[in-house]
Design a protein around this nucleic acid. Structure first.
Length: 565
RNA sequence: UGGGGCGUAGCCAAGUGGCAAGGCACAGGGUUUUGGUCCCUGCAUUCGGAGGUUCGAAUCCUCCCGCCCCAGCCA
């Protein structure tokens, strides 16, 4: 059995496939598909579905198609298909030559509809949409049959052909399946198959003015492509009897629809409609804003495809409604970047430090390790001189308990450099603001070790002032302040948008080696977090970095715990 | 009051009659020139509840409770 990851958590869909394979169902074929509607950008929830479908195909030596479910021209755009293609392939999946569109099948769908009409299983209905709703009945009451339900086959064929030809106005008529207006499942009460829409389609242009509905089209799309296992989300469970009904009536290849629970993520929103609102309302800067849970947003934020694939595997697939803790996603990106990202020194909020006993006009090149997790990534040189910057947070004039960074009289290590001791704090006379620190260094501790064996409790990152390069750094935080911003039904979720989800730092100081970075390049700024070069705004003479995720910070936890005491 | 689903730890999630995997989070401890990583340890006598069947139940049966979805010519 093709399974190179025996430790993968089992899930019910995989179990169904294993069982089907055991009985040689579909001649042992496994063929899945990812069927997005091109009406928005893909988000992390779609990524889970992509990983599921392509992953299953991969695991069982099958195939997975990418298919655009473009049956509604008024909502769909080419921009979205472009972004979806980019996102799926960025995630690392390959549909080879199997890129399909529902619109490729419009002719076949039309023929199938004619077949159903001729079997007396579909009819043209002249009821308005309001009337159709009234006739449908309610959840607890049966519906009424349309007065047009018993038209002759000839009349239905004629009317349907004239619908196709464009003789009727939008909404004037629809084609409906003739099933059962008293069915307890609302979806079976003569569902609409075609509606008249005089709208240009992003691919077929003005060829069509009738468009198939999802229920009518989807099963047939799957059938035409000989899909074996058609995974979709839970809300379509009620549609399965209809999915099956159409395929049975037509006697065509019958894929199996399997429903799984869609994913929710804490502190964000996974709904195309709401994400569109955030974009259109300028609450974020576009679909690929690094705060967005979209694949393009995560990509720009610095997430790797591997981290997202791993996350998808980690959250699993089940039928139970779930809200995954965003900490799990953050864990996945840290895990990946810890192994792969080069370490670098960068100061976000600089505090000037003068090493008073270090010679003027001197600079030396110190050896620094590029990644302690991977020796093959080698070492580099970092310049050191009399004036350096350290992080404002790394000095406290009046250090609290358990704070073991720099403080007056205290000695700490500068990473890869020297031990320094703080002797003097220079303040602005008026504001009391700390302007700079005067420290002395111990020349014997070069590289970071004291020959006499004395220890320091802290190691700080730093950057030489005269060698540093400037950069803008964008710090991102969760998009919403509540774990489930949509939970309160009578409060708009936008109320819970985090006003501090983006903080821009303009005068960050980075080690000079970062001068020639390229868009998308990722680094760990030691003791801070993982950052990547912004793909849109970063320029050679104006570097912009996005913080992907901060490092775990146990000091922050201690601080918080002390405050809560 | 119709139909379809789902209830295993704070969050995901295995398990399908033989005595509760794993991960995240959290809490301790060790290593450490990143308060990072890594490594140990702890974390459900119990599976929504109550009965029943059985030598034995999260798994089977009955009843009850809770949550989600469905009345678009959206997908």
């Amino acid at each position: 059995m093709p399974n190179d990851k025996p430790d993968r958590t089992p899930n019910f869909i995989r179990n169904i496939i294993i069982e089907d394979l055991k009985h040689n169902k579909n001649d042992g074929r496994v063929h899945t598909r990812f069927p997005p509607e091109p009406n928005g950008y893909l988000h992390i929830g779609h990524a889970k579905s992509i990983c599921l479908n392509f992953g299953l195909a991969e695991e069982f030596n099958g195939l997975c198609n990418l298919r655009f479910d473009d049956t509604n021209p008024v909502k769909e755009e080419d921009e979205y298909v472009k972004s979806i293609i980019e996102d799926v392939s960025w995630l690392g999946f390959d549909w080879e030559n199997r890129l399909y569109y529902a619109s490729d099948y419009f002719d076949q769908l039309y023929d199938y509809a004619l077949q159903l009409i001729k079997k007396g299983k579909a009819y043209v209905c002249d009821l308005s949409s309001e009337e159709t709703r009234e006739y449908r009945g309610t959840l607890t009451e049966a519906g009424k049959e349309s007065p047009y339900r018993n038209r002759s086959i000839e009349e239905n064929v004629d009317l349907f052909e004239r619908m196709y030809k464009g003789e009727f106005a939008d909404g004037a008529r629809v084609l409906r399946a003739k099933i059962d207006m008293a069915h307890p499942n609302m979806n079976m009460r003569d569902p609409v198959m075609y509606r008249i829409l005089h709208a240009a389609h992003h691919r077929t242009g003005d060829k069509w003015c009738i468009y198939p509905t999802y229920d009518w089209a989807h099963g047939l799309e799957d059938s035409i492509e000989r899909i074996t296992h058609s995974a979709c989300t839970l809300e379509f469970e009620d549609h399965r009897p209809l999915y099956d009904w159409f395929l049975e009536q037509l006697g065509t290849f019958h894929p199996q629809q399997i429903e799984f629970a869609p994913m929710n993520l804490t502190y964000t929103m996974l709904s195309k409609r709401k994400l569109l609102e955030l974009v259109q309302g300028d609450h974020v800067n576009g679909w690929d804003d690094p705060r967005m849970p979209t694949i393009s947003g995560l990509r720009r934020r610095g997430y790797t495809p591997a981290s997202i694939r791993n996350f998808s595997e980690m959250v699993g697939v089940a039928k139970r409604e779930s809200t995954v803790d965003i900490a799990m996603l953050e864990y996945c990106i840290r895990e990946d970047l810890n192994k792969s990202a080069p370490r670098v020194l960068g100061v976000l909020q600089p505090l000037k430090v003068v090493i008073t006993n270090y010679p003027e006009n001197q600079a030396e090149e110190l050896d620094a390790v590029n990644n302690p997790e991977d020796a093959s990534m080698g070492t580099r040189k970092v310049p050191f001189s009399k004036i350096i910057y350290i992080e404002q947070d790394d000095f406290k004039e009046d250090p609290p308990k358990k704070y073991f960074r720099l403080a007056p009289g205290r000695e700490v290590r500068l990473r890869y450099a020297y031990f320094i001791t703080c002797n003097e704090v220079i303040k602005d006379e008026k504001t009391g603001e700390i302007k700079e620190l005067h420290c002395t260094y111990d020349p014997a501790t070069k590289g970071g070790n004291a020959p006499d064996g004395r220890k320091v409790k802290a190691t700080l990152h730093w950057v030489s002032a005269e060698h540093a390069i400037d950069a803008e750094i964008r710090l991102y935080d969760r998009l919403f302040v509540k774990p489930d911003p949509g939970a309160e039904k009578d409060v708009d979720y936008k109320t819970f948008l985090n006003p501090n989800s983006l903080e821009i730092l303009k005068s960050c100081k980075l080690e000079p080696g970062l001068k020639n970075v390229v868009a998308g390049e990722r680094f760990q700024f030691e003791r801070q977090g993982y950052f990547c070069v912004d793909s849109k705004d970063s320029k050679p003479d104006g570097l912009v970095f996005n913080r992907t995720v901060p490092l775990r910070d146990s000091w922050a936890k201690i601080e918080k715990a002390m405050k809560n005491k």
